[in-house]
């Protein structure tokens, strides 16, 4: 850890302006950033504290949920409207980290969290394109049990570890931000970036741009949603594979389906082929199994993470069963 400045901006605009300066980093709950500082992975010149300029507010209206970027993961998970109207979101949040961390972790920070790739988190490893662009990727030929089977590139196969973001993807959330030109809205599907040749670019945000709130629309499927996460131990572990699903039924048939995967891809992953295969079918185990076969289409595996292909299928089936129940 090195010396750095600590800045408390007086307004959102000042925060944006500060955030644009070289080596300035935003801090919200700090559960991730402080960790990376201590590991010497992040070496900022200054931290810009967002706690004074963002909102923690969570409010439900007939058209959907609006939550301030500072809403704590625990408050969001435990909000009665969220539990009732957006069960997948509540379940995803509660499956993440530990109660202590969730009490501090913010909605914006969770969206923006960095990968858990062990090579990324160890500055003693020279090759990591995400940490040092152009240096190579230690994981490709290394220990890759936790790594992505979908959305990877020759430059990076790191998993995006957020549970919450997977639920937001299934629920068509919209991320609202502030940059120097003013506010804008980014669909969650466009928010996280594929690594491609530039794995250091992780989101659609521009330098200095701040997540201010997230909107989750009420929809025909948002209530019938579920999140299932499979991990090595019973709690306090990142996903080996997870699925957020949402269903709208019409009579005996599936009218709309949303299936998003976590733990297996470089960004929260929409399984569009699975969704298509569910449409117009009865919500039965046979339907789910047949559709889930497509969950990891196009997967590129290593000997360590090959199991995730089958696991992803099974976790999709389980999540669909939960949502349909």
């Amino acid at each position: 850890m090195r010396d750095f400045d600590y800045v408390v901006p007086k307004s959102l605009d000042e925060a944006v302006a500060r955030g644009k300066q070289a080596e300035h980093r935003f801090i919200a709950g700090g559960t991730l950033l402080v960790d990376l500082l201590r590991l010497d992975v992040e070496r900022p010149a200054a931290l810009v504290d967002l706690n004074a300029v963002l909102s923690e507010r969570i409010s439900w209206a007939p058209n959907g949920l609006t939550a301030g970027a500072l809403a704590r993961n625990s408050d969001l998970a435990d909000h009665p409207d969220v539990r009732r109207e957006l069960p997948a979101l509540s379940q995803a949040l509660e499956s993440g980290a530990s109660p202590q961390i969730r009490n501090l972790a913010s909605l914006g920070g969770n969206l923006m969290q960095r990968t858990r790739c062990a090579y990324f988190r160890d500055p003693g490893v020279a090759e990591c394109n995400k940490r040092r662009p152009g240096s190579g990727c230690a994981a490709l030929e290394g220990y890759s049990r936790m790594h992505a089977v979908l959305g990877g590139s020759r430059a990076c196969i790191a998993v995006h570890p957020s549970d919450m973001s997977v639920a937001l993807l299934a629920l068509d959330a919209i991320v609202r931000t502030r940059r120097s030109q003013g506010g804008r809205e980014i669909a969650i599907a466009d928010f996280h970036a594929l690594p491609g040749e530039t794995p250091q670019v992780e989101t659609a945000l521009e330098p200095g741009e701040i997540v201010t709130e997230v909107f989750v629309p009420a929809s025909g499927f948002s209530r019938r949603s579920a999140y299932v996460k499979v991990r090595d131990r019973a709690a306090f572990a990142f996903a080996l594979a997870s699925a957020a699903v949402a269903l709208e039924l019409s009579g005996e048939k599936i009218a709309t389906a949303r299936v998003a995967l976590g733990g297996v891809a470089t960004k929260p992953w929409r399984a569009l082929e699975v969704e298509a295969a569910l449409l117009g079918r009865p919500p039965t185990r046979e339907t789910f199994e047949a559709a889930a076969k497509l969950a990891a289409n196009g997967a590129r595996t290593t000997p360590h993470n090959q199991f995730k292909v089958e696991l992803a299928r099974r976790v999709v089936v389980r999540a669909l069963e939960r949502a349909a129940a």
């Binding site: 988190r121 019973a234 709690a235």
Partner: peptide
């Protein structure tokens, strides 16, 4: 890591001991 003998699971988030659950 067999390439350089470095431990990859270097903290208690990656090295799993049982939790209460």
């Amino acid at each position: 890591d067999p390439r350089n003998g470095r431990v990859v699971t270097r903290d208690l988030a990656d090295y799993h001991v049982p939790v209460h659950a």
